[in-house]
């Protein structure tokens, strides 16, 4: 059954059809949430909430890219959660702890040598920490563009802002992350990632 038929069936209330869409898109949706939220537990919560909301409001889906529909839903969930945390400073990102690499096989690979794995983990940590320093709007724009590979137009639609706003947010986010990584290069980044 193709995606359009699955969406129509889901709009008729058939949850089996929607679950097929969940299985197809959950990797992308979860990764977007993970890069925005910065920890697996919050990303899983946001992903589950996003699929529930997407199913409950699937009647409002009027065609177009279903992936964008899901990405917008999970982005809004992440945005709401981050803003809620911002309103309650007592809950900080540190309260959720560091990412446990042992329980997160994404950061390891059997084909890589141990020193390569360690080097890549350092870079990944540096990038993730740098992303966390960005304002919410810039963080979401950066993840959508450079992690998810979406176009400016898609980002403008998902975040519901003008195209020019996407450009400026992305430029500022990239440059802030660049400056952050340059500050950390002596300690965290491997030589091949450092400036010449």
């Amino acid at each position: 059954m193709d995606e359009e038929s699955l969406i129509e069936a889901a709009q008729q209330g058939k949850i089996d059809a929607f679950n097929e869409l969940v299985l197809f898109y959950q990797q992308q949706v979860y990764n977007l949430a993970y890069r925005i939220m910065g920890d697996p537990a919050s990303a899983a919560d946001a992903t589950q909430d996003a699929f529930i909301s997407a199913y409950q409001s699937i009647d409002h889906f009027r065609g177009g890219s279903f992936k964008s529909y899901l990405m917008r839903t999970v982005t809004n969930k992440c945005y709401d959660e981050l803003r809620r945390r911002k309103r309650r400073p007592a809950i900080s990102f540190e309260d959720f702890g560091e990412v446990d690499e042992e329980s997160n096989p994404v950061l390891t690979s059997e084909r890589e040598r141990p020193e390569e794995v360690l080097e890549r983990q350092d870079v990944t940590h540096a990038i993730e920490d740098g992303i966390k320093t960005l304002p919410i709007d810039q963080r979401i724009t950066l993840v959508l563009a450079d992690v998810q590979g979406m176009s400016y137009q898609e980002i403008a639609k998902i975040t519901d802002v003008a195209l020019g706003t996407v450009k400026s947010r992305l430029a500022r986010a990239r440059c802030k992350l660049r400056d952050y990584l340059q500050e950390q290069q002596g300690e965290l980044l491997p030589p091949r990632y450092r400036h010449a």
């Binding site: 949850i15 929607f18 979860y30 992903t47 950061l107 992350l177 990584l181």
Partner: peptide, 28 residues
């Protein structure tokens, strides 16, 4: 910087996010 972001590894999903059958909506 952009290249590092593009090379970020994909995080595997910790579990399936399928919805339970009890959530099935009545067809309108």
């Amino acid at each position: 910087t952009v290249s590092l972001l593009n090379d970020l590894p994909q995080a595997p999903v910790p579990r399936n996010f399928i919805l339970p059958l009890s959530m099935e909506k009545r067809p309108r």
